[in-house]
């Protein structure tokens, strides 16, 4: 589903973000990307959505080589990818319903489809009774649920999560992780960049560890730190 083949990425000022990264993530996998700040986790995710371009190497996403994709095809690639972030990135002046509906509207879905899908997905994330609220009236956990609903409402093949629990307390974090696991069970490939040791250790999923842009560990059913370290 996602394949990095000897990918290099350097930012201006010769800051090396990724160095000769080669990984292969299969359809339906749940993968944690871990590592200290500045290790290249966010760059890794940005290359998948083509927000950033690799300097060299090949990146394959959902069967397409991202580097050779013309700009006009990028939006269609992104429709296969849902994204959630630490800061939620919701539109504060729109209601919960509108925030989720927005993701369908911009892809040109008909109104009746939007009306049927949005309540369904909000029920799934446990916010069926808060559709008319604005993000400012919700807790952090609830806002992140709205973001998950927006990311999943298009039924993407891939869900990228960049520190989605960074602003949440442990109980809310557990709720969000259950939600992501459920989405993964529907067949969506989930790639999550995180610093959250407890959840990585508890879930025992595949772990890719980055350090200064280099993959230093790729371990099935891994934990946050090296076993035995």
């Amino acid at each position: 589903m996602i394949r990095f083949d000897h990918v290099h990425k350097t930012y201006k000022g010769s800051v090396v973000a990724l160095k000769d990264v080669t990984v292969d993530i299969k359809r339906g996998e749940f993968v944690f990307v871990v590592g200290p700040s500045g290790s290249g986790k966010t760059t890794f995710l940005s290359l998948v959505t083509k927000e950033e371009r690799a300097d060299s190497g090949e990146i394959w996403v959902a069967g397409k080589e991202v580097g050779s994709l013309p700009p006009w095809k990028v939006p269609y690639l992104r429709r296969n990818i849902g994204c959630i972030f630490q800061d939620f990135r919701l539109l504060p002046e729109r209601t919960v319903y509108d925030n989720v509906a927005f993701a369908l509207e911009v892809t040109g879905r008909p109104r009746h489809f939007v009306r049927s899908q949005v309540p369904q997905i909000l029920e799934l994330v446990g916010l069926g009774n808060k559709m008319g609220r604005r993000p400012g009236e919700l807790s952090g956990g609830e806002q992140q649920r709205v973001a998950v609903a927006r990311a999943f409402v298009n039924r993407p093949l891939i869900l990228l999560a960049d520190e989605p629990t960074g602003n949440l307390d442990p109980a809310t974090t557990a709720g969000i992780m259950r939600l992501l696991e459920r989405i993964n069970q529907y067949g969506t490939t989930v790639v999550m960049a995180t610093h959250h040791q407890e959840i990585v250790d508890a879930m025992r999923k595949r772990v890719i560890e980055l350090d200064h842009g280099v993959v230093v560990r790729d371990q099935a059913r891994g934990v946050y730190g090296m076993v035995g370290a």
């Binding site: 006009w72 939006p75 269609y76 690639l77 994204c83 539109l91 927005f102």
Partner: peptide
Amino acid sequence: RREVAVMKLVGATNWF
């Protein structure tokens, strides 16, 4: 800009 960023994120085309 926030709205535009979200539009790009969820796959809105340039024309949209």
